[in-house]
Design a protein around this nucleic acid. Structure first.
Length: 204
DNA sequence: CAAACGATCTCCT
DNA sequence: GGAGATCGTTTGC
């Protein structure tokens, strides 16, 4: 059992946090068992100036409310049939968040196969809607602190090489669509989509 | 009230 | 590997 990320950890700038979360272990415990996976892909959404963010222009609704809270809580929202999970970042009243787009299964793989109704390992968690289903993350987790059960993030490992590129599926977001705020562990097979334009960056 | 939005799944090639 | 159907919530008319 590795160490829980501290509330301090979540206070780093959003772009830094988005990279630092790569390789960390996302865990969800339920009565059916525990399922977890290493975070391998993230996207940063930055507050009032990012047209792709729900909190663009400080839009504050029942849905986005938790983005204005302290960093380190879960922001879940339903996109059609799927629930997506974000890590809230930025200081209080700074509505920023990091979307978790893919994880690599670690614990509870049989449980994930049941929940996902497939036995193909690669299909379990290789997308933002898939991983929430596999870990049973839902709107009941909205606003949950990520430093205590039943949903939390542990220190994992530091990836040797990570890549950055444009975010996925935000073509209608003006100039913000070109911001390179998507990060993933280079060549990890569970990353949701591959893109040709990428920069490889080494962590300090 | 109608439209838009984005991820997944299915089917096809 | 790619195009189209599907779906629930939010936002625009």
């Amino acid at each position: 059992m590795s160490e829980m990320l501290s509330s301090q950890f979540y206070r780093q700038p959003t772009l830094e946090l988005a990279k630092a979360l790569l390789g960390c272990l996302l865990v969800k415990e339920t009565p059916d068992g525990t399922a977890s996976g290493y975070i391998v892909e993230t996207e940063a959404y930055k507050g009032p100036d990012d047209q792709a963010a729900h909190s663009y222009k400080n839009r504050r609704t029942k849905r986005t409310e938790v983005m204005f809270h302290h960093p380190g809580v879960a922001y879940t929202y339903v996109m059609h049939t799927h629930c997506l999970v974000n890590v809230v970042s930025g200081a209080l009243e700074k509505p920023e968040a990091i979307l978790i787009r893919a994880i690599e299964p670690v614990e509870g793989i049989e449980l994930m196969k049941e929940r996902r109704k497939t036995t193909i390992l690669k299909n379990l968690t290789s997308g933002p809607g898939k991983l929430t289903k596999a870990l049973d993350i839902h709107m009941g987790d909205y606003g949950q602190k990520l430093i205590e059960k039943p949903i939390y993030i542990l220190k994992g490992y530091t990836p040797a090489i990570i890549s950055e590129g444009k975010r996925i599926g935000i073509d209608n977001s003006g100039e913000a669509k070109d911001y390179p705020w998507r990060y993933w562990i280079t060549d990890n097979p569970f990353v949701s989509k591959h893109q040709k334009e990428e920069n490889r960056i080494h962590l300090p």
